[in-house]
Simulated scan of single mutants.
Amino acid sequence: MTGLFRRLTPRAGAPIPFTIDGAPAEARPGDLLIGAILLHRTALRRFEFGPGARAGFCLMGACQDCWVRLADGRRLRACTTLVEPGMAVITGEAGG
């Protein structure tokens, strides 16, 4: 994985498969979506008001900077949502 985050200690449990913009990814039980995405990417999402990339700001659900979409259209906060098997996350970030 070549993301912004690095896992410092192994986390027990079977891998949880999900996708980020169609690319296969995996998380571990208990991983929040923001951490799982940033383990695989250097940015969480594209900034909607300009060309920049966003990586989340407060990382605790207070700032509204980590909203992502699921393929089914739902919007959710990546910093307060646990990864679930089969999630199809849409970030708008091309490869991060």
Rank of each mutant, 00 (worst) to 15 (best):
I34P: 04
G22N: 11
A88T: 10
P15N: 06
P10C: 03
P17F: 00
E93R: 03
D65R: 03
P17H: 08
G61A: 12
I90T: 15
P24S: 09
A71P: 07
C66T: 06
R46T: 14
C66M: 04
R11C: 02
G22C: 05
P51F: 08
R77C: 02
F49H: 15
H40A: 15
A53R: 13
A53D: 15
G96Y: 04
L44D: 09
P15Y: 02
T81D: 10
R69G: 11
P85F: 04
V68Y: 07
G73H: 01
P85E: 06
M87K: 06
L76F: 05
L39F: 01
W67G: 11
D72Y: 08
C66F: 01
T9W: 10
T42A: 11
A94F: 06
L32S: 02
A43K: 07
C63P: 08
C79T: 02
D31K: 00
T42K: 08
F18E: 01
P24E: 05
R74P: 04
T19A: 08
L4R: 12
P10S: 08
R46H: 14
T9P: 00
A88P: 07
I90D: 15
A27K: 09
M1R: 12
A62M: 13
A23D: 11
G13R: 07
G73M: 04
P24V: 01
A94L: 08
I90H: 09
P51M: 08
A62V: 14
P29Y: 02
A55N: 04
L70E: 13
C63G: 06
L33H: 12
